[in-house]
Design a protein around this nucleic acid. Sequence first.
RNA 1: CGGGGCAUAGCGCAGCCUGGCUAGCGCACCUGCUUUGGGAGCAGGGGGUCCCAGGUUCAAAUCCUGGUGCCCCGACCA
Length: 569
Amino acid sequence: MRVSQSFIPTHKESPTDAEVISHKLMVRAGMIRKLAAGIYSVLPLGLKVLRKVENIIREEMNRIGGLETFLPSIQPAELWQESGRWDFYGKELLRIKDRHGREFCYGPTHEEVITDLVRKEIKSYKQLPLMFYQIQTKFRDEVRPRFGIMRGREFMMKDAYSFHTDENCAKETYEKTKVAYSNVFKRCGLDFRMVEADSGTIGGSFSHEFSVLAESGEDAIGYCESCSYASNLEKTESQVPLDIGESELSAELEKVDTPNKKTITEVTDFLEVSPKNLVKTIIFQTEKELVAALVRGDHEINPVKLKNLIDCSVLESASPEVIEKTTNIPCGFIGPSGLGLKVYADLSIPLMKNFIVGGNEKDTHLRGVQPDRDFKIEKSGDIRLAKENDPCPKCSDGKIQIKRGIEVGHIFILGKKYSSALKANYLDPNGKSLPMEMGCYGIGVGRTAAAAIEQNHDEKGIIWPTPLAPFQVIILPVNYADEQTKEASDLAYQKLWDKGIETLLDDRKDRIGVKFKDADLIGVPLQLIFGPKNLKENQVEVKIRKTGESQLHPFPEILDRIEEILAPL
RNA sequence: CGGGGCAUAGCGCAGCCUGGCUAGCGCACCUGCUUUGGGAGCAGGGGGUCCCAGGUUCAAAUCCUGGUGCCCCGACCA
C-alpha cells in the first residue's frame, strides 16, 4: 500500500473527549472515528488490525473444532421472551419495531439464536458435542460508554457456544477453550492473566476471564504472589483476618454519644479506637426488601459476594432517603441491634467481640457489642472485598496482590439454563429426551486491539506487536522526488510484497520529519529509511520502532533478511 | 439514573463575565515559489446555522428560558 493512495488521516492532537491512551492513539493514527456515543467507524488502518485479531481467533477456534457461523444481529422478541431475558435484560437491550409493529432487539449476545438453531437441527446424542462461533457486531446500550472502542455500545465480538450431552464433556471443551484463548492472547503479544470470575446471574457453575494487565483497566485482579491463584477481585476469596477476635474494649454494652460523627474515621478518631473495633452496617435494597450487611470497619463490602450470599436477583445500595424513611434512623448511626432488617454478616463478624456499631438513633453509637447477645445474624459468609496483602485462599504462605486489568475474554459453563428454557433437547442412547449442557465463550475483538495499545505505546505513538501490526514494514524515502531514492524505495516495496511482507510506502511529497512522526504514530514495527547519502554508499537505514535502534545495512541485499529481523519483534 | 462540565471552521482553542467595528488564533486544507534526515519558510487563498428553538434589546456568539448532543465523576453492567 502506498500512503498517497491510501486513507490514513493522522492528527497531531488528541480529541478532547478521549480519556485513555488507546482511544487517543487510535483516533490520532486514523484508525477510528466517532459517529455517536459509543459508536465508531473503523477506518482502513483500524480494520486491518481488527482483521489480524479476528484471524488469530479464527485459527485458534478452528483448531479446537469450532464451526464458524454468522447469526442475525436483529432478533425477534419472542425468542427472548421464551428465554425470559426480554424482561430481565433491561435497558441494555436495544429494542426496535418493524413496520408491522413486531418487536425485535439488536443482539447483545446470541445464546437465544444459537440455541434455537440447535434445537431445530440437533436431535441425537450422536450429533454432539458441537461448538459454533461467529465474529460479529453486538449492540449493548451501555449506560455510560467510554474509552473509545474499548467500551463501546456497538462492538465487534467473537462469541462461541458449545452443546453437550453431559457436564464432563462441557468441561472438556471448556478446558480446550482455555488453551485456545491463551494461545490467542499470547499470539497477540499481550501480557494477560486467566482469572477466576463470578458467573453471576448466568447461573453457571464456573467461569474464567482473560484479563490484560494495564493501569487503565476497569477490573481489579487479585492474585497470589506465590501460587498460581488469580481471580477477579469481586470473586477473590477472603479469609478471616488473623487478628480477629482481639478487643481491648469492655464486654459491657453501653450507649455513647457521638455528636455528628458519621463516618468510620470520624467515629474512630472521636472515640480513639482502631477501625478494627468497629462494625459497619450498610443497607442494600433487594427485589424484595431492605437488608443490612455487616463488615469490620476497615473492610469493604463486595456486592457480588453479598448478592450470592443473599441469593437475590437484584441488589442495589439503598439511597439515604429510602433508608431514613424506612428505618427512621439518620444515615451514619445505623447498627444491627434492634434494626428490624435481616442482617447478613461477613464471616469474621461472628468471631468478633466487644465492638462498636451505630446506635440506631441520632448522634449515638453502641460499644461492647457482641453477636447473638445483642443482635441476630440471618446468615454469615464471605462478603468482603479482598484487600492487598490478605492471605491467599489457596496456599499457606502467599499474600494477595492487586493489579488492574482489561477483560478481553470471558468463558463460562452455562449448564442447562438456555437449553431448558428453549427446550433444546437430544435423545440419549435409551431414547430419553434430555436438555443439553452448554458453554459460552467470548472475546472482544476491538477491545483486544485497544488493550494491545494500552500495553504497547510510548510518547510517540503505538508500538504494535508484529502479529497485530497493520503493516510489518514502512518504507520512508527522505525525498521521494529524488530519482535514485524513488527507484530504491520502489524496488524495496516491490520485493518485500513479493516476499509476502505487508509493506507501506510513504510516497508523499512531505518532508521526512512528517513521515517519521506518522510512522512512529501508527506503530509499524520496522522502518526502512532511504536517503540519498546512504544510497550513494549502497546502504539503507533499518530502524526498529520499539527500541529506536537503527542500523545501516547494504542495499538491496538487506531485503532478503527482513523476515529474519522481523521475527523476534 | 444522580452530580458536574462543555458545545464557536476538519482538529485543538480564544472571544462570552462587562451585548456594538468584517468573529479570531494554531494546526489542517488550496495556489505559487523556495526547501527536503524528526510535524519547513515566504506570499496569497478557501472554509462558520458561533448546537437548536424561543425571548430580552436599536443591536445577541455574548444576557434569559426551554430543548438536544457530548464529556467527566458516581451508581449500574457479560
